[in-house]
Design a protein around this nucleic acid. Structure first.
Length: 111
DNA sequence: GCTGTGACTTCGA
DNA sequence: CTCGAAGCCACAG
């Protein structure tokens, strides 16, 4: 009873960024994912909240934020700077052109 | 506890 | 094509 209640409460706070975090971990090397795909993969439409959580970034060491781009392929922004983001993307073999990536090639879907 | 803002998206003018 | 508004969730003030 009480346990369930507590767990439920905790879940309401956690679900979001934790799920995003988990999904983001599923993204294989050399692939990127958009905020939208990420949000939808956890049954939510809070695209902005995803960005918010990344920006606040509670887990800077655990979350590969550079793998998250906008739906248009625009890489958006990055805590450490867009330059750094591009650098890291390039390290995964992802081509960034004019601050954009090719989602058809590198976009990962969670099926 | 309500308000504003933000690494976003989509639709209509 | 560009611009503005609405909609979603979390967090700071």
């Amino acid at each position: 009873m009480f346990v369930v209640l507590i767990l439920t409460k905790m879940r309401s706070k956690r679900t979001f960024n934790e799920k995003i975090y988990n999904k983001l971990k599923e993204v294989p090397f050399g692939k990127v994912v958009s905020y939208k795909i990420l949000a939808e993969s956890i049954n939510s439409k809070a695209y902005r909240a995803v960005g918010s959580c990344m920006r606040r970034n509670k887990y800077p060491d655990k979350i590969p934020c550079f793998k998250v781009v906008r739906n248009d392929g625009d890489i958006g922004k990055y805590s450490l700077g867009i330059k750094e983001k591009i650098k890291r993307l390039n390290k995964e073999g992802i081509i960034v052109k004019n601050n954009k990536v090719d989602l058809d090639k590198f976009g990962f879907k969670f099926d």
